[in-house]
Design a binder for these strands. Structure first.
Length: 425
RNA sequence: GGAGAGGUGACCGAGCUGGUUGAAGGUGCGCGCCUGCUAAGCGUGUGUGGGGGUUAAACUUCACCGAGGGUUCGAAUCCCUCCCUCUCCGCCA
């Protein structure tokens, strides 16, 4: 959510943001409603002031044994008037509020303006595409030998777009999760946290998934609960409606959680195997920082995620998302894509974003600064990283001609129950 | 699912026979003083959000005692609905 004052004073900037992000918010309507609301507020305040004043006089007059019946009946009229205006006011307030929730965050100045994902800007890469002396297989072909995954039976249990990790596949995935968690905790100083993955509507609005993306979320209708599409929702709302002392900032949390996405409208697009599934596991980093540090924090978090991939020895590239790809709530986002030689393409495994005060405003996460002023924190989050596509790249990059795979050094200590495959030194 | 208790400021906690209570008292925190360290003591200050106003302040006004309605000239205080927390019982991992 943007500050209404900011919107009033920067109409063009907000309009550009709406246009460049392809949103539909009606800014002119909002400005009219805002004006109307303030006018009502003014009338309401004045009437209330009158009412408060007289209400204080009445007991004194009564004490002095004076007749108040006429005054009281006069106030009855004012009271009715106040009620009427108050109703109008709350109606327009909630209307205005729900419109404000549809205004996206403003892109940061160095975010490229674009029309499609092709306009994302290449920032850097690490490593290089691995060369093979044989034709590398993709993860599904490899799976015919490895039997790490079982999509048929997953579909039997739940439907299409669900996965099952079996035996060593399950062990390998768990190793990835544990490795990433420990890495962030020990090397980067994150605090681990484990939160509900079923959340209320308020939380989903707080981080900006709602109202825009309701169709993409799993809803538990009976209780109006949602399954989180990312741990970001739970972690960011951890501090909702609080005023934090500045001394506890910055806060760095890391959490592993399943993520649930309906992926409505994306059927048939990049859905092969583990590429796009309705439920997957992810290690997520979230930070709460003072505003002046949020952009250096973004760079730090990018490094945090990069180091995971470096440790895994996976070639990747980093993109600065253009306005076309930038999410509703983000001001700036880096995507990290890793190379999968069998599939012959890059897979997005991490999005690292600065939301500035956008989420903080929605979820009301504030802090008392050194100067004693109450301010909104800046929130950031990034995958560190998602497991399915990392799993794809891992087995495709480390495959041998005989269909077996090697295991990178950093995962070895996590693979005690893992037999039969070769270990890479 | 059944029974009960409760939700007040950064925190604890009064008020809840309706009207100087935006809210006592305490803790914490800020500032000043005092005490040669540590600790203690004394004084003083310390809510959030909106509107009006100002170059900015000052100033002024309204709202907010879980949320939303209602009663009333007037509600933290009375009534209704909902949400949440805690305790006990039941059920179950």
């Amino acid at each position: 959510m943007l500050d209404i004052k900011f919107i009033r004073e920067n109409v063009d900037i907000v309009k550009d943001a709406i246009k460049n992000k392809n949103e539909k918010a009606d800014l002119d309507k909002i400005l009219i409603m805002d004006k109307k609301k303030r006018k009502l507020q003014f009338n309401y305040d004045n009437l209330r002031a009158e009412q408060n004043k007289v209400s204080k006089e009445i007991p004194e007059l009564k004490k002095a044994k004076k007749d108040t019946s006429e005054l009281i009946s006069e106030m009855g009229i004012i009271s009715k008037n106040i009620k009427k205006i108050s109703n109008e006011l709350s109606e327009i307030s909630s209307e205005l509020n729900s419109e404000l929730l549809k205004i996206p965050n403003i892109p940061y100045p160095d975010v490229p303006i674009g029309k499609s994902e092709d306009d994302n800007k290449f920032i850097k890469e690490w490593g290089e595409k691995k060369e093979f002396s044989f034709k590398p297989l993709d993860h599904l072909e490899l799976n015919e030998n490895l039997h790490y995954l079982d999509f048929k039976r997953a579909a039997k249990i739940s439907g299409s777009g669900f996965s099952a990790y079996v035996g060593n596949g399950a062990i390998l995935e768990r190793a990835l999760i544990n490795f990433m968690l420990d890495f962030h905790i020990q090397k980067h100083g994150y605090k681990e946290i484990s939160l509900p993955v079923i959340v209320n509507r308020k939380s989903m609005i707080g981080t900006g998934q709602l109202p825009k993306l309701e169709e993409d979320m799993y809803l538990v209708e009976q209780d109006d609960f949602f399954l989180v599409p990312t741990a970001e929702v739970s972690i960011t709302n951890f501090y909702a409606d609080e005023i934090l002392p500045y001394t506890i900032l910055p806060q760095k949390f890391v959490s592993y959680s399943p993520c649930f996405r309906r992926e409505a409208g994306s059927y048939g697009k990049d859905t092969k195997g583990l590429q796009r599934i309705h439920q997957f596991n992810k290690v997520e980093m979230v930070r709460f920082v003072q505003p002046e540090y949020s952009y250096e924090t973004l760079e730090e978090m990018l490094m945090d995620a990069e180091e995971i991939l470096q440790a895994l020895g996976l070639h990747y590239r980093v993109l600065n998302l253009s306005t076309a790809d930038l999410s509703f709530a983000a001001a700036k986002t880096y995507d990290i894509e890793i190379w999968a030689p069998g599939s012959k393409k890059y897979f997005e495994v991490s999005s690292i974003s600065n939301f500035e005060s956008f989420q903080a405003r929605r979820a009301s996460i504030r802090f008392r600064d050194v100067d004693d002023k109450v301010k909104y924190v800046h929130t950031l989050n990034g995958s560190g990283v998602a497991t399915p596509r990392t799993f794809i790249a891992l087995i495709e990059n480390y495959q041998n001609k005989d269909g077996s795979i090697n295991i990178p050094e950093c995962l070895r200590s996590y693979l005690k129950g893992f037999k039969e495959q070769r270990i890479l030194v």
